[in-house]
Protein backbone atom coordinates (compact mmCIF):
# COMPACT_ATOMS: atom_id res chain seq x y z
CA UNK A 1 0.00 0.00 0.00
CA UNK A 2 3.05 2.20 0.42
CA UNK A 3 3.64 2.08 -3.33
CA UNK A 4 0.06 3.13 -3.94
CA UNK A 5 0.47 6.12 -1.65
CA UNK A 6 3.65 7.07 -3.51
CA UNK A 7 1.64 6.92 -6.70
CA UNK A 8 -0.94 9.28 -5.21
CA UNK A 9 1.79 11.76 -4.34
CA UNK A 10 3.26 11.46 -7.83
CA UNK A 11 -0.02 12.29 -9.51
CA UNK A 12 -1.16 15.06 -7.17
CA UNK A 13 2.11 16.95 -7.67
CA UNK A 14 1.10 17.78 -11.22
CA UNK A 15 -2.07 19.50 -10.11
CA UNK A 16 0.07 22.29 -8.73
CA UNK A 17 2.34 22.54 -11.76
CA UNK A 18 1.67 24.26 -15.03
CA UNK A 19 0.19 21.93 -17.63
CA UNK A 20 2.70 21.14 -20.36
CA UNK A 21 0.12 21.11 -23.13
CA UNK A 22 0.12 23.97 -25.61
CA UNK A 23 -3.34 25.24 -26.54
CA UNK A 24 -2.93 24.51 -30.19
CA UNK A 25 -4.82 26.95 -32.37
CA UNK A 26 -3.84 29.87 -30.15
CA UNK A 27 -0.31 28.72 -29.38
CA UNK A 28 1.90 27.32 -32.09
CA UNK A 29 5.00 25.57 -30.90
CA UNK A 30 7.91 26.74 -33.02
CA UNK A 31 9.32 24.20 -35.44
CA UNK A 32 13.02 23.45 -35.32
CA UNK A 33 15.26 25.20 -37.86
CA UNK A 34 15.86 21.97 -39.75
CA UNK A 35 12.19 21.08 -39.80
CA UNK A 36 11.19 19.58 -43.13
CA UNK A 37 7.80 20.81 -44.19
CA UNK A 38 6.50 20.52 -47.71
CA UNK A 39 8.95 21.21 -50.54
CA UNK A 40 8.68 24.41 -52.57
CA UNK A 41 10.36 25.82 -55.65
CA UNK A 42 12.78 28.70 -55.33
CA UNK A 43 13.02 31.89 -57.32
CA UNK A 44 16.13 33.19 -59.00
CA UNK A 45 15.85 36.94 -58.44
CA UNK A 46 18.76 37.71 -60.76
CA UNK A 47 16.90 36.41 -63.77
CA UNK A 48 13.40 36.76 -62.37
CA UNK A 49 12.57 33.14 -63.06
CA UNK A 50 12.50 29.85 -61.14
CA UNK A 51 15.69 27.93 -60.56
CA UNK A 52 13.95 24.80 -61.75
CA UNK A 53 14.70 23.62 -65.24
CA UNK A 54 12.26 20.74 -65.15
CA UNK A 55 15.04 18.15 -65.39
CA UNK A 56 12.76 15.52 -63.77
CA UNK A 57 15.41 14.16 -61.36
CA UNK A 58 13.22 14.82 -58.34
CA UNK A 59 10.21 13.36 -60.11
CA UNK A 60 12.11 10.16 -60.81
CA UNK A 61 13.72 9.90 -57.39
CA UNK A 62 10.58 10.60 -55.38
CA UNK A 63 9.73 7.39 -53.47
CA UNK A 64 6.01 8.08 -53.72
CA UNK A 65 5.80 9.65 -57.18
CA UNK A 66 4.08 12.68 -55.74
CA UNK A 67 5.43 15.12 -58.31
CA UNK A 68 5.02 15.81 -61.97
CA UNK A 69 6.95 18.32 -64.08
CA UNK A 70 7.12 19.58 -67.65
CA UNK A 71 9.77 21.84 -69.18
CA UNK A 72 9.79 24.21 -72.12
CA UNK A 73 12.31 26.48 -73.86
CA UNK A 74 13.35 29.39 -71.70
CA UNK A 75 12.38 32.72 -73.32
CA UNK A 76 14.90 34.48 -71.03
CA UNK A 77 17.70 32.39 -72.48
CA UNK A 78 16.82 33.61 -75.93
CA UNK A 79 16.78 37.16 -74.57
CA UNK A 80 20.19 36.57 -72.99
CA UNK A 81 19.18 37.33 -69.40
CA UNK A 82 19.47 33.72 -68.21
CA UNK A 83 21.80 30.80 -68.66
CA UNK A 84 19.00 28.17 -68.49
CA UNK A 85 18.10 26.76 -71.87
CA UNK A 86 15.00 25.07 -70.48
CA UNK A 87 12.72 26.23 -67.76
CA UNK A 88 9.90 24.69 -65.80
CA UNK A 89 6.49 25.08 -67.36
CA UNK A 90 4.28 22.94 -65.19
CA UNK A 91 5.05 21.46 -61.79
CA UNK A 92 2.69 19.85 -59.38
CA UNK A 93 3.14 18.25 -55.96
CA UNK A 94 0.43 16.13 -54.48
CA UNK A 95 0.66 16.83 -50.76
CA UNK A 96 -1.39 13.75 -50.01
CA UNK A 97 1.39 11.58 -51.33
CA UNK A 98 4.41 13.59 -50.21
CA UNK A 99 6.13 11.91 -47.26
CA UNK A 100 8.49 14.80 -46.49
CA UNK A 101 11.57 12.64 -46.94
CA UNK A 102 13.69 15.37 -48.52
CA UNK A 103 15.08 13.14 -51.26
CA UNK A 104 14.02 15.65 -53.94
CA UNK A 105 16.18 18.30 -52.27
CA UNK A 106 19.14 15.95 -52.06
CA UNK A 107 19.07 15.00 -55.72
CA UNK A 108 18.40 18.45 -57.16
CA UNK A 109 21.47 19.75 -58.99
CA UNK A 110 20.01 23.20 -59.65
CA UNK A 111 19.24 24.40 -56.11
CA UNK A 112 15.69 24.62 -57.30
CA UNK A 113 13.74 22.84 -54.58
CA UNK A 114 13.97 23.15 -50.83
CA UNK A 115 12.13 21.75 -47.83
CA UNK A 116 10.31 24.71 -46.33
CA UNK A 117 8.59 25.06 -42.99
CA UNK A 118 5.20 24.95 -44.72
CA UNK A 119 2.74 22.84 -42.82
CA UNK A 120 -0.88 23.20 -41.74
CA UNK A 121 -1.92 23.28 -45.38
CA UNK A 122 -5.23 21.53 -44.83
CA UNK A 123 -8.08 22.87 -46.91
CA UNK A 124 -11.72 22.20 -47.44
CA UNK A 125 -11.34 21.94 -51.20
CA UNK A 126 -11.67 18.46 -52.59
CA UNK A 127 -8.60 18.90 -54.70
CA UNK A 128 -6.92 21.16 -52.18
CA UNK A 129 -3.86 19.03 -51.59
CA UNK A 130 -2.41 19.67 -55.04
CA UNK A 131 0.08 22.48 -55.27
CA UNK A 132 0.84 23.79 -58.74
CA UNK A 133 3.70 25.96 -59.93
CA UNK A 134 2.42 29.41 -58.75
CA UNK A 135 1.65 28.06 -55.28
CA UNK A 136 5.00 26.33 -54.99
CA UNK A 137 6.87 29.40 -56.20
CA UNK A 138 5.08 31.72 -53.80
CA UNK A 139 5.87 29.33 -50.95
CA UNK A 140 9.46 29.25 -52.13
CA UNK A 141 9.69 33.05 -52.12
CA UNK A 142 8.22 33.13 -48.65
CA UNK A 143 10.80 30.59 -47.55
CA UNK A 144 13.64 32.62 -49.09
CA UNK A 145 12.50 35.74 -47.28
CA UNK A 146 11.97 33.99 -43.99
CA UNK A 147 15.12 31.89 -43.90
CA UNK A 148 17.63 33.97 -45.81
CA UNK A 149 18.18 31.04 -48.11
CA UNK A 150 21.30 31.05 -50.24
CA UNK A 151 22.08 28.74 -53.15
CA UNK A 152 24.61 26.02 -52.50
CA UNK A 153 26.23 26.35 -55.88
CA UNK A 154 25.78 29.94 -57.10
CA UNK A 155 28.43 29.73 -59.84
CA UNK A 156 26.44 27.10 -61.60
CA UNK A 157 22.89 27.94 -60.76
CA UNK A 158 22.36 31.64 -60.18
CA UNK A 159 21.72 33.21 -63.57
CA UNK A 160 23.51 36.46 -62.79
CA UNK A 161 26.67 34.80 -61.51
CA UNK A 162 26.74 32.16 -64.23
CA UNK A 163 26.29 34.76 -66.95
CA UNK A 164 28.89 37.01 -65.38
CA UNK A 165 31.35 34.13 -65.36
CA UNK A 166 30.72 33.46 -69.02
CA UNK A 167 30.99 37.11 -70.02
CA UNK A 168 33.08 39.03 -67.46
CA UNK A 169 32.39 42.24 -69.38
CA UNK A 170 28.85 42.41 -68.03
CA UNK A 171 30.16 42.42 -64.50
CA UNK A 172 27.41 41.45 -62.11
CA UNK A 173 28.62 43.53 -59.23
CA UNK A 174 25.20 44.56 -58.05
CA UNK A 175 23.90 41.04 -57.77
CA UNK A 176 23.06 39.82 -54.33
CA UNK A 177 23.97 36.19 -54.56
CA UNK A 178 25.69 35.36 -51.35
CA UNK A 179 28.96 33.56 -50.96
CA UNK A 180 29.92 30.19 -52.30
CA UNK A 181 29.84 28.71 -48.85
CA UNK A 182 27.42 25.88 -48.37
CA UNK A 183 24.29 27.21 -46.69
CA UNK A 184 23.68 26.15 -43.20
CA UNK A 185 20.15 25.65 -42.04
CA UNK A 186 21.10 26.74 -38.55
CA UNK A 187 21.29 30.27 -39.90
CA UNK A 188 17.55 30.22 -40.31
CA UNK A 189 15.53 32.52 -38.18
Amino acid sequence: MIAGLKGFLTTIRWVFKRPVTANYPEEHLPVQPRYMGFPALLWDTTADEPFCTGCMVCVRECPTQCMSARMHDNPNFAAGTSHRRKIIEHFEINYNRCILCGICVDVCAFDAIEMTHEHELASYARNGARADLPILLSQGRRWMERSGWRPRNPEKNVAGVALAKRAPATAATKLDTGSGKAPSREDDA
Partner: peptide, 26 residues
Protein backbone atom coordinates in the same frame (compact mmCIF):
# COMPACT_ATOMS: atom_id res chain seq x y z
CA UNK B 1 12.09 17.53 -30.49
CA UNK B 2 15.74 16.56 -30.58
CA UNK B 3 15.04 14.33 -33.56
CA UNK B 4 13.30 17.20 -35.26
CA UNK B 5 16.24 19.50 -34.67
CA UNK B 6 18.68 16.91 -36.02
CA UNK B 7 16.84 15.14 -38.81
CA UNK B 8 14.11 17.62 -39.69
CA UNK B 9 11.31 15.20 -38.95
CA UNK B 10 9.72 13.95 -35.79
CA UNK B 11 8.98 10.40 -36.88
CA UNK B 12 9.92 9.56 -40.46
CA UNK B 13 13.47 10.80 -40.44
CA UNK B 14 15.21 9.45 -43.55
CA UNK B 15 18.38 10.55 -41.81
CA UNK B 16 20.72 7.57 -41.82
CA UNK B 17 22.01 7.28 -45.36
CA UNK B 18 24.15 4.76 -47.11
CA UNK B 19 27.69 5.70 -46.16
CA UNK B 20 26.92 7.97 -43.26
CA UNK B 21 24.24 10.35 -42.14
CA UNK B 22 22.37 13.04 -43.98
CA UNK B 23 24.03 16.00 -42.33
CA UNK B 24 26.00 16.71 -39.21
CA UNK B 25 24.17 17.41 -35.97
CA UNK B 26 23.45 21.06 -35.15
Amino acid sequence: NIFESVTGARLMHNYIRIGGIKEDVP
